[in-house]
């Protein structure tokens, strides 16, 4: 189904991806996407239909949808935003780029307010997003997780295993330490910036059954 055009930002058409919050049936907080980039849109005036728009990284969308990043912060943490005074058509919109420091924070959602998945419809969207997200290049590397003494190691020479789901993400940045002179294994904690108890990875393969007994935090409720 053809997606709905919402805005044109610097020659990029933004299409509706998903309405997250509406008021009187009017979308007030929603996701848009151009060819590859996600945007978060906030309606700042439901009468005049004015909006602010920020670009967001894929990991930030994940954090937003799973309540890891407050809705306000996902906007404030960007370097810039676009103010849109909508016209009767997209081509008649007034679009102005601003540095984030100039944003009137009074228009933003409440502090610490995190998005909640409250309906089946939303749950289905988030699950689909998760599947796409986890299939993205961030997680395309096939890895085997093995236990060596007390440490959990990732054997990056193994190709037939795959991380099926990465449920808890404490840190979206990876620190990789290559251990020279050995097979290319890296310390799991160092790679994901989390300790074993916090980080949870599910693997379906029998050789790694021990992981299936780990506590999981199914963030997509």
């Amino acid at each position: 189904m053809e997606k709905e055009q919402c805005f044109c930002i610097e020659n990029n058409i933004l299409y509706l991806e998903q309405v997250l919050v509406d008021y009187m049936d009017i979308p007030i907080f929603f996701l848009c996407k151009d060819q590859s980039q996600y945007y978060v849109v906030l309606c700042t005036d439901i009468d005049a239909l004015n909006y602010i728009i920020v670009k967001v990284a894929l990991g930030e969308v994940y954090g937003l949808l799973h309540g890891k990043i407050p809705m306000r912060n996902v906007i404030l943490e960007q370097k810039e935003y676009w103010e849109v005074i909508s016209g009767e058509e997209i081509s008649l919109d007034t679009v102005i780029r601003h540095g984030i420091a100039s944003l009137d924070t009074a228009v933003l959602p409440e502090k610490e307010a995190c998005f909640k998945i409250l309906t089946d419809e939303m749950r289905i969207f988030v699950q689909k997003f998760d599947n796409d997200f986890l299939a993205s290049e961030n997680f395309s590397k096939t890895q085997k997780i093995i236990q060596e003494d007390d440490r959990w190691m990732i054997d990056e020479t193994m190709e037939e295993f795959r991380i099926e789901r990465f449920i808890v993400m404490e840190d979206y940045t990876f620190k990789i330490k290559l251990q020279h002179g050995r097979a290319s294994t890296v310390n799991y904690e160092e790679k994901y910036g989390t300790d074993r108890k916090k980080a949870t990875v599910l693997c379906k393969l029998q050789a790694l059954e021990e992981w299936e007994n780990e506590d999981t935090n199914n963030a997509a409720a």
Binding site: E4, C6, L16, I26, P27, F30, L49, Y51, S86, E88
Partner: peptide, 18 residues
């Protein structure tokens, strides 16, 4: 009152199916 009854602008909200 519905949004339609209250509608104060000829513009259409964004994020709605056309």
């Amino acid at each position: 009152k519905s949004y339609f009854e209250l509608k104060k602008t000829p513009k259409s909200p964004r994020g709605m199916l056309k």
